[in-house]
Simulated assay, not measured.
Amino acid sequence: MRVERGFWEDQIHLRINDVFVSYLQYDWETAMCTYKVLNNSRYGRLSSISKQYVVCSPWFVSENTRDGLDDALHQLGAWYLEHLAEFHLSYEKQQMWLDKQWGSDKITRLYLDDHLSELTQDDIFELYRTVDRLATEYQALAPEDQNNPLEIRPPFGGFGAFCYGKLPPAINRWIEEISESIFSKQVVKDIDRSYARSFALTAFLYLFHDSQKAAYPAILKRVELWK
């Protein structure tokens, strides 16, 4: 969200605007299951979401003093808490819009909805440890190797492509099934299987973490999990 401020007639004006609650519900720096790979490209999609799906507060006005600012901020916080249900509805609307725009993510999200229950907590932690290790290996590569890993044609490489075939066996199988679905439904014109794998891997790494953060809020406390 963004807190906007203005100054008119010696008064402070504050409001909350551009409350984006999709595409990810959680911090982008951990969205790829690791603290090491800070790739924020997914959030670029939010800039194109229609304003009708984005929550905005009214302006709160106060005197241009320290006490006045404190009062306006408290009003802003109270408004936020009172409108959480509206934010949840906004999330659903934004998600529906994004699903229409990005079919590969919808396919991946629905697949995970159907299959996540097959994993134990140990399976989940194994995936996190694997991705964390792969992130370390990926960062050690030369830039040209990061951008053009094997198995996925450029320019659809990156960290997701680097992970191809290296995740736990059950997850590798999921990636193949998701990518085949993305390919068969031709979510992008003239998509080939290599391109579909890139879509599937990137969407999986984001959406898997999103789902697990909801189930296990402390899942990335690495000291507790694998240190």
Score class of each variant (00 low, 15 high):
residue 76 L to Y: 05
residue 133 R to G: 05
residue 135 A to I: 02
residue 139 Q to K: 14
residue 113 D to M: 08
residue 91 Y to I: 01
residue 80 Y to G: 00
residue 139 Q to D: 07
residue 141 L to I: 07
residue 96 M to S: 13
residue 152 I to C: 05
residue 107 I to W: 01
residue 92 E to V: 06
residue 83 H to I: 01
residue 152 I to L: 10
residue 94 Q to A: 04
residue 108 T to R: 01
residue 113 D to Y: 12
residue 100 K to H: 13
residue 81 L to V: 15
residue 119 L to C: 09
residue 103 G to F: 09
residue 116 L to Q: 12
residue 145 D to A: 13
residue 88 H to D: 14
residue 91 Y to Q: 13
residue 101 Q to G: 09
residue 119 L to G: 08
residue 82 E to F: 01
residue 124 I to A: 06
residue 134 L to G: 05
residue 125 F to V: 11
residue 114 D to S: 14
residue 104 S to Y: 11
residue 140 A to C: 07
residue 106 K to M: 11
residue 90 S to R: 00
residue 98 L to Y: 09
residue 87 F to V: 02
residue 107 I to C: 04
residue 101 Q to I: 10
residue 103 G to S: 09
residue 73 L to G: 04
residue 96 M to G: 08
residue 85 A to P: 02
residue 116 L to K: 10
residue 121 Q to S: 12
residue 102 W to H: 14
residue 138 Y to V: 00
residue 153 R to Y: 05
residue 130 T to M: 11
residue 82 E to Q: 13
residue 152 I to E: 04
residue 146 Q to H: 02
residue 75 Q to E: 11
residue 94 Q to C: 07
residue 139 Q to H: 06
residue 125 F to E: 14
residue 118 E to D: 13
residue 148 N to M: 05
residue 137 E to A: 07
residue 132 D to N: 15
residue 117 S to Y: 10
residue 104 S to H: 14
residue 146 Q to A: 04
residue 111 Y to D: 02
residue 131 V to T: 06
residue 149 P to Y: 00
residue 76 L to P: 03
residue 146 Q to I: 00
residue 142 A to Y: 01
residue 124 I to Q: 03
residue 140 A to Y: 01
residue 153 R to N: 09
residue 84 L to P: 02
residue 144 E to C: 03
residue 74 H to N: 14
residue 146 Q to C: 03
residue 152 I to H: 02
residue 142 A to F: 03
residue 141 L to N: 06
residue 153 R to P: 00
residue 88 H to M: 07
residue 96 M to V: 11
residue 101 Q to D: 05
residue 93 K to T: 03
residue 129 R to C: 15
residue 147 N to H: 06
residue 123 D to W: 07
residue 95 Q to F: 07
residue 136 T to M: 14
residue 93 K to M: 09
residue 131 V to H: 03
residue 121 Q to R: 11
residue 135 A to C: 04
residue 126 E to R: 10
residue 121 Q to A: 12
residue 87 F to A: 01
residue 95 Q to D: 13
residue 106 K to G: 12
residue 127 L to F: 12
residue 72 A to V: 10
residue 129 R to T: 10
residue 120 T to P: 09
residue 99 D to E: 13
residue 81 L to A: 14
residue 127 L to Y: 05
residue 105 D to F: 08
residue 127 L to W: 07
residue 144 E to K: 03
residue 143 P to K: 04
residue 153 R to G: 07
residue 85 A to I: 04
residue 126 E to T: 15
residue 94 Q to E: 11
residue 78 A to W: 08
residue 99 D to L: 01
residue 99 D to R: 07
residue 123 D to K: 06
residue 128 Y to D: 08
residue 77 G to Q: 15
residue 133 R to H: 10
residue 122 D to M: 08
residue 96 M to R: 12
residue 101 Q to A: 13
residue 82 E to H: 06
residue 73 L to D: 08
residue 125 F to Q: 12
residue 133 R to L: 09
residue 143 P to F: 02
residue 145 D to P: 00
residue 128 Y to L: 15
residue 77 G to W: 13
residue 148 N to L: 04
residue 129 R to M: 15
residue 97 W to E: 15
residue 149 P to V: 00
residue 106 K to R: 12
residue 120 T to G: 11
residue 151 E to G: 02
residue 96 M to N: 11
residue 144 E to D: 08
residue 88 H to G: 07
residue 95 Q to A: 09
residue 79 W to D: 00
residue 95 Q to R: 13
residue 137 E to Q: 15
